[in-house]
Design a protein around this nucleic acid. Structure first.
Lengths: 220, 220
DNA sequence: TTTAAATTTAATGATTTCTTAATGATTTTC
DNA sequence: GAAAATCATTAAGAAATCATTAAATTTAAA
């Protein structure tokens, strides 16, 4: 996963920002075209996108739209001071922030840090002794790291994101395995069992992942 | 190697800064022209350059460019308050810091110290019994120098720079081999094995470079 | 050019995760 | 309380992924 994806066709600006961000220990990737930015995003994902509105191939508006189609990745838009028109205002409205060229690199970094800080709260779900970190895919119980498999993590994530809600087996299965999977619904119960083994204090008497008879499961 | 190279044509200011910095035990050299500054840098190198933007011969922008062409030497730019225009903003973007005349000498020294400190922290990463020095490309384990190959060093660097984060195999591969490499992803696992052989206490049970199943590797 | 080191490839072995299927336990319905 | 439905548990095997090894290739050094 990339921390910050920079879509900017001016080499100097691009290198400059990259240097500063790497100095702050962010993992940075760059793309000089919108095409490349989208393909990088698709391949690796990103925690934040820094997007120059003037790219040679695709216009900024389409890129924003495509980036936001699935995930809700934060976007900072880079514009020129002379740019302001109605269409741009529309884009900025959908962006998390924007900055005008020429800009002070310190201000840009402050903006980035601010966004990460605000996002953190959303990407880390804490409940009781369980802490789930969606960004880096880790789970801790009482502060001790617990290794979950991919399926177990997905299962826990969906359950915790919907605390108090009863989720049907069919719903859980479709979200994790996909609706066209050839696996049996049964395999879900096995994974529930494995997950309980790892996160419940007494797996024989589960308090966190509760079975709702005839319906499914609920995180409480 | 010069600690601080001052490029400044006003004699009084130059002497003032020099005195203060020498009092702090820095090795200082001065140049009253851009020409002389560049030749001094070429001849001896410098850990930091203090650059007045208004020099009689070469303009500040060209000097910045030339200094940064090879090395990534930090530059602090000295400007006059009336200077601010777009071109200057471009230069400041490339500088590590700047200060406006007239300035408080204490603030300047604090800025210099800050840059040295940040550089050091960035270039030397220490964790447990492993110490990685990016500047000179050396690695020690329990104070004993360990010889790593180029690929092994890069791998260790990226992992340590991202402590606690799981880095996907694809990401690691692209950072080290480049996205257009023709090598197989598989070769990464072989290098992981070699690296573990050199830095883990028990390579059969790796504690530093941890495998995250289905995802990649993590330094912890 | 020769030699050594570093890197890559490919094949095999080991481990982990996932799935299935069978059996046992629990809850609901009648 | 018995039957039916649903869920839990277990264990075994399949599939996916990672580790290891050795040989081939490339690169760098002497």
């Amino acid at each position: 996963m990339i921390d910050i994806l920079i879509a900017e066709d001016h080499k100097e600006i691009c290198e400059l920002i990259t240097d500063f961000l790497r100095a702050e220990n962010y993992i940075v990737s760059t793309a000089e075209t919108g095409e490349k930015a989208l393909s990088l995003y698709e391949k690796y994902g990103a925690r934040l996108v820094l997007l120059d509105i003037h790219l040679p191939d695709i216009d900024g508006f389409s890129i924003c739209e495509k980036l936001r189609r699935n995930d809700n990745v934060p976007i900072i838009i880079i514009t020129a001071r002379t740019d302001r028109d109605d269409k741009l205002n529309g884009i900025l409205l959908g962006a998390d922030d924007y900055i005008e060229k020429p800009f002070d690199i310190e201000i840009l970094i402050a903006k980035i840090k601010g966004i990460f800080k605000r996002r953190l709260a959303r990407d880390i779900i804490s409940d009781g002794d369980i802490l789930l970190n969606i960004s880096d895919g880790t789970v801790t119980k009482n502060g001790i790291q617990t290794e979950l498999s991919a399926k177990e993590f997905e299962l826990l994530k969906i359950l915790m994101q919907n605390k108090g809600q009863t989720l049907t087996k069919e719903f859980l299965f479709n979200r994790i395995w996909g609706s066209d999977s050839e696996s049996e619904l049964q395999t879900l119960t096995v994974h529930i069992k494995y997950l309980r083994e790892k996160i419940e204090n007494d797996p024989k008497d589960p308090q966190k992942i509760v079975t709702v008879w005839g319906k499914g499961y609920r995180w409480s």
